[in-house]
Design a protein around this nucleic acid. Sequence first.
RNA 1: GGGUCGGUGCCCGAGUGGUUAAUGGGGGCGGACUGUAAAUCCGCUGGCUUACGUCUACGCUGGUUCAAAUCCAGCCCGGCCCA
Length: 353
Amino acid sequence: MSFSFEVLKTRGASRAGIFHTPHGSIPTPAFMPVGTLGTVKTLSPAQLGETGATMILANTYHLHLAPGEDIVAAHGGIHQFMDWSGPILTDSGGYQVFSLDQLRTLDDDGVTFRAPNGDRVRFTPEVATRIQNDLGADVIMCFDECPPAQAPYEDVVKAVARTTAWATRCQIAHRRSDQALFGIIQGGRFEDLRKRSAQELVALDFPGYAIGGVSVGEGAALIQQTVALTAPLLPAHKPRYLMGVGTYAELAQAVSCGVDLFDCVLPTRLARHGSALVQGERWNLKNAPFRRDYTPLDPTCPCYTCTHFTRSYLCHLIRSQEVLGLTLLALHNVTELVRFVQGLRQRILEQRS
RNA sequence: GGGUCGGUGCCCGAGUGGUUAAUGGGGGCGGACUGUAAAUCCGCUGGCUUACGUCUACGCUGGUUCAAAUCCAGCCCGGCCCA
Protein backbone atom coordinates (compact mmCIF):
# COMPACT_ATOMS: atom_id res chain seq x y z
CA MET A 1 0.00 0.00 0.00
CA SER A 2 1.68 3.21 -1.17
CA PHE A 3 -0.58 5.62 0.66
CA SER A 4 -2.19 5.57 4.03
CA PHE A 5 -3.37 8.06 6.55
CA GLU A 6 -3.58 7.44 10.25
CA VAL A 7 -5.07 9.73 12.82
CA LEU A 8 -2.94 9.58 15.94
CA LYS A 9 -4.93 11.83 18.16
CA THR A 10 -7.94 14.06 18.07
CA ARG A 11 -8.88 17.02 20.13
CA GLY A 12 -12.35 18.18 19.38
CA ALA A 13 -12.45 18.38 15.62
CA SER A 14 -8.73 18.94 15.32
CA ARG A 15 -6.39 16.02 14.82
CA ALA A 16 -2.78 14.99 14.51
CA GLY A 17 -1.85 12.20 12.20
CA ILE A 18 0.60 10.80 9.69
CA PHE A 19 0.21 10.67 5.96
CA HIS A 20 2.39 8.03 4.31
CA THR A 21 3.54 8.45 0.72
CA PRO A 22 6.07 6.64 -1.49
CA HIS A 23 8.63 9.36 -0.75
CA GLY A 24 8.16 9.50 2.97
CA SER A 25 5.67 10.30 5.67
CA ILE A 26 4.24 13.63 6.61
CA PRO A 27 3.30 14.33 10.20
CA THR A 28 0.09 16.30 10.08
CA PRO A 29 -1.09 18.98 10.37
CA ALA A 30 1.63 20.11 7.99
CA PHE A 31 2.40 23.20 5.99
CA MET A 32 3.69 22.63 2.44
CA PRO A 33 5.69 25.49 1.02
CA VAL A 34 5.81 26.09 -2.69
CA GLY A 35 9.01 24.44 -3.80
CA THR A 36 9.03 25.15 -7.48
CA LEU A 37 6.72 26.70 -9.96
CA GLY A 38 8.70 27.03 -13.09
CA THR A 39 9.26 30.76 -12.77
CA VAL A 40 10.90 32.14 -9.67
CA LYS A 41 12.14 30.67 -6.46
CA THR A 42 14.60 31.99 -3.97
CA LEU A 43 15.14 28.87 -1.91
CA SER A 44 17.17 25.85 -2.89
CA PRO A 45 15.75 22.44 -2.00
CA ALA A 46 18.51 22.19 0.61
CA GLN A 47 17.29 25.41 2.20
CA LEU A 48 13.72 24.22 1.93
CA GLY A 49 14.77 21.13 3.81
CA GLU A 50 16.23 23.28 6.56
CA THR A 51 12.85 24.85 7.17
CA GLY A 52 11.52 21.55 8.40
CA ALA A 53 9.14 21.19 5.51
CA THR A 54 8.42 17.58 4.68
CA MET A 55 6.20 17.90 1.65
CA ILE A 56 6.34 20.66 -0.92
CA LEU A 57 4.08 21.88 -3.67
CA ALA A 58 4.86 22.29 -7.33
CA ASN A 59 2.73 23.64 -10.12
CA THR A 60 1.49 21.70 -13.11
CA TYR A 61 0.59 24.65 -15.29
CA HIS A 62 3.92 26.40 -14.89
CA LEU A 63 5.99 23.26 -15.21
CA HIS A 64 4.07 22.38 -18.34
CA LEU A 65 4.99 25.74 -19.86
CA ALA A 66 8.60 25.45 -18.75
CA PRO A 67 10.49 23.26 -18.94
CA GLY A 68 7.71 20.87 -20.00
CA GLU A 69 6.74 17.59 -18.38
CA ASP A 70 8.71 15.62 -20.98
CA ILE A 71 11.94 17.11 -19.71
CA VAL A 72 10.97 16.52 -16.11
CA ALA A 73 10.06 12.94 -16.97
CA ALA A 74 13.37 12.48 -18.77
CA HIS A 75 15.08 13.31 -15.49
CA GLY A 76 13.21 10.47 -13.90
CA GLY A 77 10.49 12.64 -12.43
CA ILE A 78 10.14 15.79 -10.46
CA HIS A 79 11.88 14.46 -7.36
CA GLN A 80 15.09 13.93 -9.24
CA PHE A 81 14.63 16.96 -11.44
CA MET A 82 14.65 19.34 -8.50
CA ASP A 83 16.46 17.08 -6.07
CA TRP A 84 13.76 16.87 -3.46
CA SER A 85 13.64 13.38 -2.06
CA GLY A 86 10.62 14.01 0.16
CA PRO A 87 6.99 13.98 -0.84
CA ILE A 88 5.78 16.40 -3.50
CA LEU A 89 2.29 17.50 -4.43
CA THR A 90 1.42 19.08 -7.74
CA ASP A 91 -1.49 21.42 -8.11
CA SER A 92 -3.49 20.73 -11.22
CA GLY A 93 -3.68 24.14 -12.81
CA GLY A 94 -7.22 24.63 -11.54
CA TYR A 95 -6.16 27.70 -9.62
CA GLN A 96 -4.99 29.27 -12.87
CA VAL A 97 -8.58 29.02 -14.05
CA PHE A 98 -9.17 31.61 -11.37
CA SER A 99 -5.97 33.63 -11.40
CA LEU A 100 -5.59 33.87 -15.18
CA ASP A 101 -9.20 34.89 -15.57
CA GLN A 102 -8.42 37.42 -18.31
CA LEU A 103 -6.13 35.06 -20.19
CA ARG A 104 -8.32 32.06 -20.62
CA THR A 105 -11.61 30.78 -21.96
CA LEU A 106 -13.60 28.17 -20.16
CA ASP A 107 -15.94 25.50 -21.50
CA ASP A 108 -17.40 22.25 -20.25
CA ASP A 109 -14.59 20.25 -21.73
CA GLY A 110 -11.69 22.30 -20.33
CA VAL A 111 -9.83 25.59 -20.42
CA THR A 112 -7.75 27.31 -23.06
CA PHE A 113 -5.04 29.55 -21.65
CA ARG A 114 -3.06 32.22 -23.39
CA ALA A 115 0.50 31.58 -22.32
CA PRO A 116 3.00 34.44 -21.81
CA ASN A 117 4.64 33.64 -25.15
CA GLY A 118 1.29 33.92 -26.91
CA ASP A 119 0.73 30.18 -27.29
CA ARG A 120 -2.70 28.76 -26.73
CA VAL A 121 -2.50 26.05 -24.11
CA ARG A 122 -5.38 23.66 -23.71
CA PHE A 123 -6.01 22.08 -20.32
CA THR A 124 -8.63 19.40 -19.87
CA PRO A 125 -8.98 16.99 -16.96
CA GLU A 126 -7.25 14.39 -19.09
CA VAL A 127 -4.38 16.72 -20.03
CA ALA A 128 -3.86 17.95 -16.47
CA THR A 129 -3.84 14.39 -15.19
CA ARG A 130 -1.48 13.18 -17.88
CA ILE A 131 0.95 16.00 -17.19
CA GLN A 132 0.85 15.27 -13.48
CA ASN A 133 1.42 11.58 -14.19
CA ASP A 134 4.47 12.59 -16.20
CA LEU A 135 5.76 14.95 -13.52
CA GLY A 136 5.53 12.18 -10.99
CA ALA A 137 4.59 13.89 -7.73
CA ASP A 138 3.28 11.79 -4.85
CA VAL A 139 -0.01 13.60 -4.65
CA ILE A 140 -1.71 15.03 -7.68
CA MET A 141 -4.85 17.11 -7.82
CA CYS A 142 -8.00 16.92 -9.88
CA PHE A 143 -8.40 19.65 -12.44
CA ASP A 144 -11.14 21.87 -11.06
CA GLU A 145 -12.96 25.08 -11.79
CA CYS A 146 -12.19 27.63 -9.13
CA PRO A 147 -14.61 30.57 -9.36
CA PRO A 148 -13.80 33.92 -7.80
CA ALA A 149 -15.16 34.83 -4.37
CA GLN A 150 -17.78 37.19 -5.72
CA ALA A 151 -19.14 34.73 -8.29
CA PRO A 152 -22.93 34.60 -8.30
CA TYR A 153 -24.74 31.49 -7.13
CA GLU A 154 -25.57 30.21 -10.62
CA ASP A 155 -21.90 30.40 -11.66
CA VAL A 156 -20.86 28.41 -8.63
CA VAL A 157 -23.54 25.82 -9.37
CA LYS A 158 -21.94 25.34 -12.76
CA ALA A 159 -18.45 25.26 -11.27
CA VAL A 160 -19.48 22.54 -8.85
CA ALA A 161 -21.03 20.48 -11.62
CA ARG A 162 -17.98 20.88 -13.80
CA THR A 163 -15.62 20.11 -10.98
CA THR A 164 -17.43 16.87 -10.27
CA ALA A 165 -17.56 15.90 -13.92
CA TRP A 166 -13.90 16.75 -14.34
CA ALA A 167 -13.01 14.81 -11.19
CA THR A 168 -14.54 11.72 -12.71
CA ARG A 169 -12.55 12.27 -15.88
CA CYS A 170 -9.35 12.81 -13.92
CA GLN A 171 -9.96 9.59 -12.06
CA ILE A 172 -10.42 7.70 -15.31
CA ALA A 173 -7.37 9.31 -16.90
CA HIS A 174 -5.13 8.71 -13.90
CA ARG A 175 -2.72 5.87 -14.61
CA ARG A 176 -0.23 5.68 -11.74
CA SER A 177 -0.98 3.86 -8.52
CA ASP A 178 2.10 5.36 -6.90
CA GLN A 179 0.42 8.75 -7.07
CA ALA A 180 -2.58 9.68 -4.96
CA LEU A 181 -5.20 11.69 -6.82
CA PHE A 182 -7.06 14.06 -4.51
CA GLY A 183 -10.51 15.48 -5.17
CA ILE A 184 -11.20 19.20 -4.71
CA ILE A 185 -14.38 20.51 -3.13
CA GLN A 186 -15.81 23.69 -4.61
CA GLY A 187 -19.05 25.49 -3.82
CA GLY A 188 -17.84 28.96 -2.99
CA ARG A 189 -19.46 30.57 0.02
CA PHE A 190 -22.73 28.64 -0.41
CA GLU A 191 -23.40 25.99 2.16
CA ASP A 192 -25.71 23.89 0.00
CA LEU A 193 -23.21 23.91 -2.85
CA ARG A 194 -20.35 22.94 -0.57
CA LYS A 195 -22.47 20.04 0.62
CA ARG A 196 -23.37 19.04 -2.88
CA SER A 197 -19.77 19.23 -4.05
CA ALA A 198 -18.51 17.23 -1.09
CA GLN A 199 -21.22 14.62 -1.47
CA GLU A 200 -20.52 14.11 -5.16
CA LEU A 201 -16.76 13.91 -4.74
CA VAL A 202 -16.84 11.72 -1.65
CA ALA A 203 -18.92 9.30 -3.68
CA LEU A 204 -16.01 9.03 -6.10
CA ASP A 205 -13.85 7.73 -3.24
CA PHE A 206 -10.62 9.68 -3.63
CA PRO A 207 -7.74 8.87 -1.26
CA GLY A 208 -7.72 12.46 -0.02
CA TYR A 209 -9.73 15.65 -0.33
CA ALA A 210 -8.95 19.29 -0.71
CA ILE A 211 -11.05 22.27 0.18
CA GLY A 212 -10.67 24.48 -2.86
CA GLY A 213 -12.22 27.73 -3.94
CA VAL A 214 -11.00 29.43 -0.81
CA SER A 215 -8.59 32.35 -0.52
CA VAL A 216 -9.78 33.67 -3.85
CA GLY A 217 -10.34 37.22 -2.70
CA GLU A 218 -12.98 36.81 -0.02
CA GLY A 219 -11.35 37.87 3.21
CA ALA A 220 -10.48 36.01 6.37
CA ALA A 221 -13.90 35.72 7.96
CA LEU A 222 -15.43 34.04 4.94
CA ILE A 223 -12.48 31.72 4.54
CA GLN A 224 -12.89 30.51 8.09
CA GLN A 225 -16.62 30.17 7.69
CA THR A 226 -16.21 28.11 4.54
CA VAL A 227 -13.60 25.87 6.12
CA ALA A 228 -15.75 25.33 9.17
CA LEU A 229 -18.67 24.19 7.10
CA THR A 230 -16.72 22.13 4.56
CA ALA A 231 -14.15 20.23 6.62
CA PRO A 232 -16.75 18.14 8.51
CA LEU A 233 -18.18 16.99 5.19
CA LEU A 234 -14.98 15.13 4.34
CA PRO A 235 -14.15 11.54 5.31
CA ALA A 236 -12.42 11.43 8.68
CA HIS A 237 -10.05 8.63 7.71
CA LYS A 238 -8.59 10.47 4.73
CA PRO A 239 -6.25 13.47 4.60
CA ARG A 240 -7.87 16.85 4.24
CA TYR A 241 -6.00 19.56 2.47
CA LEU A 242 -6.92 23.24 2.56
CA MET A 243 -5.58 24.83 -0.60
CA GLY A 244 -3.96 28.23 -0.55
CA VAL A 245 -4.10 29.00 3.18
CA GLY A 246 -2.47 30.86 4.72
CA THR A 247 -2.12 33.11 7.60
CA TYR A 248 -1.58 32.33 11.25
CA ALA A 249 -5.23 32.80 12.09
CA GLU A 250 -6.61 30.75 9.23
CA LEU A 251 -4.14 27.93 9.75
CA ALA A 252 -5.04 27.68 13.41
CA GLN A 253 -8.73 27.84 12.72
CA ALA A 254 -8.54 25.25 9.95
CA VAL A 255 -6.58 22.87 12.14
CA SER A 256 -9.27 23.22 14.74
CA CYS A 257 -11.70 22.10 12.04
CA GLY A 258 -9.69 18.99 11.31
CA VAL A 259 -7.64 20.03 8.29
CA ASP A 260 -4.34 18.19 7.84
CA LEU A 261 -2.44 19.81 4.99
CA PHE A 262 -1.86 23.36 3.87
CA ASP A 263 0.01 25.21 1.22
CA CYS A 264 0.41 28.91 0.68
CA VAL A 265 2.57 31.29 -1.33
CA LEU A 266 2.41 33.88 1.42
CA PRO A 267 5.67 33.11 3.24
CA THR A 268 7.73 33.20 0.06
CA ARG A 269 5.87 36.04 -1.57
CA LEU A 270 5.93 38.18 1.54
CA ALA A 271 9.65 37.49 1.74
CA ARG A 272 10.22 38.65 -1.81
CA HIS A 273 8.19 41.75 -0.99
CA GLY A 274 10.30 42.46 2.07
CA SER A 275 7.99 41.26 4.83
CA ALA A 276 8.64 38.83 7.64
CA LEU A 277 6.31 36.63 9.63
CA VAL A 278 7.27 36.97 13.25
CA GLN A 279 5.42 35.47 16.18
CA GLY A 280 1.99 35.97 14.76
CA GLU A 281 2.65 39.28 13.07
CA ARG A 282 3.68 40.58 9.68
CA TRP A 283 6.52 43.03 9.64
CA ASN A 284 7.69 45.17 6.78
CA LEU A 285 11.46 44.89 7.11
CA LYS A 286 11.94 47.97 4.94
CA ASN A 287 10.48 50.17 7.65
CA ALA A 288 12.84 52.75 9.06
CA PRO A 289 13.01 51.47 12.65
CA PHE A 290 14.65 48.25 11.46
CA ARG A 291 17.60 50.12 10.02
CA ARG A 292 19.15 50.35 13.44
CA ASP A 293 17.64 47.28 15.06
CA TYR A 294 20.60 45.10 15.91
CA THR A 295 18.62 42.17 17.26
CA PRO A 296 17.78 38.90 15.50
CA LEU A 297 14.57 38.83 13.48
CA ASP A 298 13.08 36.35 15.94
CA PRO A 299 15.34 35.33 18.82
CA THR A 300 13.23 32.22 19.39
CA CYS A 301 13.52 31.00 15.81
CA PRO A 302 16.15 28.34 15.02
CA CYS A 303 16.47 29.19 11.33
CA TYR A 304 19.75 30.23 9.73
CA THR A 305 18.48 33.77 9.20
CA CYS A 306 17.55 34.32 12.82
CA THR A 307 20.65 32.66 14.23
CA HIS A 308 23.12 34.60 12.08
CA PHE A 309 21.78 38.01 11.13
CA THR A 310 20.23 41.14 12.58
CA ARG A 311 17.09 42.94 11.53
CA SER A 312 19.36 45.81 10.58
CA TYR A 313 21.27 43.65 8.12
CA LEU A 314 18.08 42.19 6.65
CA CYS A 315 16.68 45.71 6.31
CA HIS A 316 19.82 46.73 4.46
CA LEU A 317 19.68 43.74 2.11
CA ILE A 318 16.04 44.38 1.26
CA ARG A 319 16.58 48.10 0.71
CA SER A 320 19.59 47.36 -1.46
CA GLN A 321 17.57 44.85 -3.41
CA GLU A 322 20.02 42.09 -2.70
CA VAL A 323 18.60 38.70 -3.63
CA LEU A 324 20.14 37.32 -0.47
CA GLY A 325 17.65 39.38 1.52
CA LEU A 326 14.75 37.67 -0.20
CA THR A 327 16.29 34.29 0.36
CA LEU A 328 16.96 34.87 4.03
CA LEU A 329 13.44 36.18 4.60
CA ALA A 330 11.90 33.30 2.67
CA LEU A 331 13.95 30.86 4.69
CA HIS A 332 12.66 32.39 7.89
CA ASN A 333 9.05 32.79 6.79
CA VAL A 334 8.74 29.21 5.64
CA THR A 335 10.45 27.99 8.80
CA GLU A 336 8.04 30.10 10.80
CA LEU A 337 4.88 28.68 9.24
CA VAL A 338 6.18 25.13 9.29
CA ARG A 339 6.99 25.55 12.96
CA PHE A 340 3.69 27.22 13.67
CA VAL A 341 1.72 24.33 12.26
CA GLN A 342 4.04 21.83 13.95
CA GLY A 343 3.28 23.64 17.18
CA LEU A 344 -0.43 23.16 16.58
CA ARG A 345 0.26 19.47 16.03
CA GLN A 346 2.25 19.22 19.23
CA ARG A 347 -0.51 20.78 21.21
CA ILE A 348 -2.92 18.17 19.92
CA LEU A 349 -0.52 15.32 20.66
CA GLU A 350 0.28 16.55 24.15
CA GLN A 351 -3.36 16.72 25.04
CA ARG A 352 -4.28 14.14 27.62
CA SER A 353 -6.98 11.89 26.27
C1' G B 1 40.91 86.92 -20.96
C1' G B 2 37.34 85.53 -25.33
C1' G B 3 33.41 82.25 -26.93
C1' U B 4 29.71 78.85 -25.73
C1' C B 5 26.27 75.80 -23.05
C1' G B 6 24.19 75.51 -18.49
C1' G B 7 22.49 76.51 -13.05
C1' U B 8 14.78 73.71 -11.34
C1' G B 9 12.18 70.88 -5.21
C1' C B 10 16.77 65.50 -0.96
C1' C B 11 19.30 63.77 -6.01
C1' C B 12 18.90 63.34 -11.40
C1' G B 13 15.98 65.67 -14.85
C1' A B 14 11.30 67.88 -17.88
C1' G B 15 9.13 72.46 -18.52
C1' U B 16 10.78 78.04 -22.11
C1' G B 17 5.24 84.04 -20.52
C1' G B 18 -0.61 82.40 -17.71
C1' U B 19 -5.45 75.89 -15.54
C1' U B 20 2.51 75.38 -12.30
C1' A B 21 3.63 73.69 -5.79
C1' A B 22 5.86 72.90 -10.95
C1' U B 23 5.84 66.12 -15.94
C1' G B 24 9.24 61.81 -15.18
C1' G B 25 12.69 58.89 -12.63
C1' G B 26 15.60 57.91 -8.15
C1' G B 27 15.67 58.31 -3.01
C1' G B 28 12.68 58.72 1.38
C1' C B 29 8.01 57.40 4.25
C1' G B 30 3.98 54.09 4.52
C1' G B 31 0.45 50.29 2.76
C1' A B 32 -1.25 45.77 0.25
C1' C B 33 -0.16 40.60 -0.65
C1' U B 34 -3.69 33.65 1.21
C1' G B 35 -3.94 26.20 -4.39
C1' U B 36 2.38 32.47 -7.53
C1' A B 37 0.64 36.69 -14.54
C1' A B 38 3.53 39.00 -8.00
C1' A B 39 12.06 40.04 -6.19
C1' U B 40 5.22 42.79 -7.59
C1' C B 41 1.53 46.47 -6.98
C1' C B 42 -0.59 51.04 -4.59
C1' G B 43 -0.41 55.73 -1.88
C1' C B 44 2.30 60.05 0.15
C1' U B 45 6.73 63.02 -0.43
C1' G B 46 7.98 72.41 0.21
C1' G B 47 6.15 74.99 5.16
C1' C B 48 1.93 76.08 8.32
C1' U B 49 -3.31 74.40 8.75
C1' U B 50 -8.15 69.20 10.50
C1' A B 51 -9.73 71.52 6.10
C1' C B 52 -11.29 75.84 2.98
C1' G B 53 -6.69 78.19 2.68
C1' U B 54 -2.28 80.64 2.98
C1' C B 55 2.97 81.51 2.77
C1' U B 56 7.72 80.30 0.48
C1' A B 57 9.80 78.21 -4.00
C1' C B 58 13.00 77.16 -10.16
C1' G B 59 21.64 80.49 -8.75
C1' C B 60 21.59 86.11 -6.97
C1' U B 61 19.87 91.19 -7.84
C1' G B 62 17.11 94.36 -10.55
C1' G B 63 13.83 95.15 -14.84
C1' U B 64 9.71 94.31 -18.71
C1' U B 65 4.54 92.57 -18.20
C1' C B 66 -2.16 92.36 -15.79
C1' A B 67 0.96 87.81 -15.28
C1' A B 68 7.89 85.19 -15.27
C1' A B 69 11.06 78.98 -13.57
C1' U B 70 10.01 80.77 -18.49
C1' C B 71 11.65 87.48 -21.66
C1' C B 72 15.78 91.47 -20.67
C1' A B 73 20.28 93.38 -17.93
C1' G B 74 24.16 92.84 -14.51
C1' C B 75 26.47 89.68 -11.17
C1' C B 76 27.95 84.78 -8.98
C1' C B 77 28.99 79.60 -9.94
C1' G B 78 29.95 75.10 -13.20
C1' G B 79 31.10 72.30 -18.07
C1' C B 80 33.34 72.52 -22.80
C1' C B 81 36.21 75.15 -26.71
C1' C B 82 39.81 79.01 -28.02
C1' A B 83 43.83 82.01 -26.28
